[in-house]
């Protein structure tokens, strides 16, 4: 069973509760809806989600998306099967993706092609292309991928810093597999 938490503003959470999640166009591990993965109640994922909200709020991300910019954490359960989840967090496959992105970015930049996209969009799309190729080989559409991504600015926290600057993310590609199980407002969260 896969569980995750997503930090956002109260106004956006109301919209999500009514309409569902909408996939992003890009992201650190490709497009999708990003959750921090959790396994139990006392979870680091809540802290990372809170810090994500804090970072987004500081950047003014929620200003155009409703009046209430306070923090809301949305917990979800992913209704999927093992064969429809791609785990990119394991060492060997992670190395393969990192090497691929590194080599292809260099190849694109030195090709002389006129590239207008920022680097993060190219990286995101290379991820997406890689996942699509795996889907073609396996003959399956993934509901989600598991990936280690950088913790938000200001984290990883007092204890978290002893465990590196990455957290495990669930990047949901098929939004119909998301089941929201809880939403709660948070004013402060220490870890």
């Amino acid at each position: 069973m896969i569980f995750g938490i997503h930090g956002t503003s109260v106004s956006v959470s109301e919209k999500i509760n009514k309409e569902g999640f909408i996939t992003s166009i890009s992201g650190m591990s490709g497009p999708g809806v990003y959750f921090w993965r959790y396994f139990n109640e006392d979870c680091y994922a809540r802290y990372l989600s809170f810090m994500w909200w804090k970072y987004s709020k500081e950047r003014g991300e929620y200003n155009k998306l409703g009046k209430n910019t306070d923090c809301c954490l949305i917990a979800m359960k992913l209704n999927t099967t093992e064969d429809k989840t791609l785990d990119l967090s394991h060492g060997q496959i992670r190395e393969e993706v990192r090497s691929l992105v590194n080599k292809q970015l260099k190849r694109i930049k030195t090709s002389g092609a006129k590239i207008t996209e920022p680097e993060e969009i190219l990286v995101s799309t290379l991820y997406q292309l890689f996942v699509e190729k795996i889907e073609n080989y396996r003959g399956v559409k993934f509901d989600a991928i598991i990936s280690d991504i950088s913790t938000p600015k200001g984290s990883p926290g007092k204890i978290g810093r002893y465990f590196g600057n990455c957290g495990e993310a669930v990047v949901v590609l098929n939004t119909s597999s998301i089941e929201i199980i809880a939403s709660d407002m948070v004013t402060e969260y220490e870890y």
Partner: peptide, 14 residues
Amino acid sequence: AAKEIEEMPIEQLL
């Protein structure tokens, strides 16, 4: 999957 992408001509990759 990575090999397929790496072996693509640059025009196809773009």
